[in-house]
Amino acid sequence: MQRHRTRRGGALSWLAALAAALMATMVLAACSGSGSSAAPSGDTHAVKHVLGTTEVPGKPKRVVALEYSFVQALDQLGVTPVGIADDNASDRIQQLLGKKISYTSVGTRLEPNLELVSSLKPDLIIADSTRHAKIYKQLSAIAPTIVLNSWEGSYQEIKDGVVTIADALGDRAAGEAVVRKHEETMAALAAQIPKGEKRTFMLTVSTPDSMTLHTSTSFTGSVFQTLGLTPAVQSDKPQESGAGLERVAAVNPDVLLVAIDGSGTAYDQWKDTATWKGISAVKNNQVYVVDRNQFSRFRGLGTAEVIAKTVLKNVYHVDA
């Protein structure tokens, strides 16, 4: 291109300085790279999870949970987490567990604050496969980390997750016991549902302007199936978002649970229209407004029982 000329020296020296700066950062990065990361010591056991196998030492006591469903599982296993990514909503944790616990908020589930996680000196971190896969390496540098599918998890995956968490806590049997007890509860609840139930069930989350339909592969959908009920939308995608009134009317569920937090959502707009009143569930008085945290956000074993009890109480008038 241009021949080298002496008066270009200015430019060259600048670029040399830039190059030197690049080099310096490279050295700095290399230096920091040589630092030792937390090496597990003593007797450890291998825990298999979504992103591989992690060596977890002994019986971890200081646990950080980055999703709500993990908090519920830990509670059932008798462990109180030291840190929770709670989206700065401690009232949700209280609602989830039915009691106040003392913990440190580590920020949002979307981008948990890793400095805070690290300052809690945890010995186990439980992360979600959708939201935290990108920071798995960094989490692992803080403490042994297991990754489970909570965000998009089906009922079965949530149940398996409880056993995995128990395994990580060093007591797999406790997890299996919790799941067994839960399955007995669910079976007892399912037994109270009349045989030959043909009606279709659906949970929708009402947002401004539209609704999100939870399908057969969603958490609620698979809980319905466990109870012997039929989800109204069969799909391999857990959710169908942006559904208008017409779509809900076309699905025409026989029993409809509408999850809401706050007012001003599509449900308020739609409920007085003739089309809404033409939906089978509305005609037969089978629409139930439920809490969005409980039905859509928490996704734990306890949540499954709450869903089953709500259905029994409202649809079949059985107080379980």
Partner: peptide, 10 residues
């Protein structure tokens, strides 16, 4: 070490 080396410096 984590905060400095793994989190803030990178």
């Amino acid at each position: 070490a984590f905060i400095v080396q793994e989190y803030r410096l990178p």
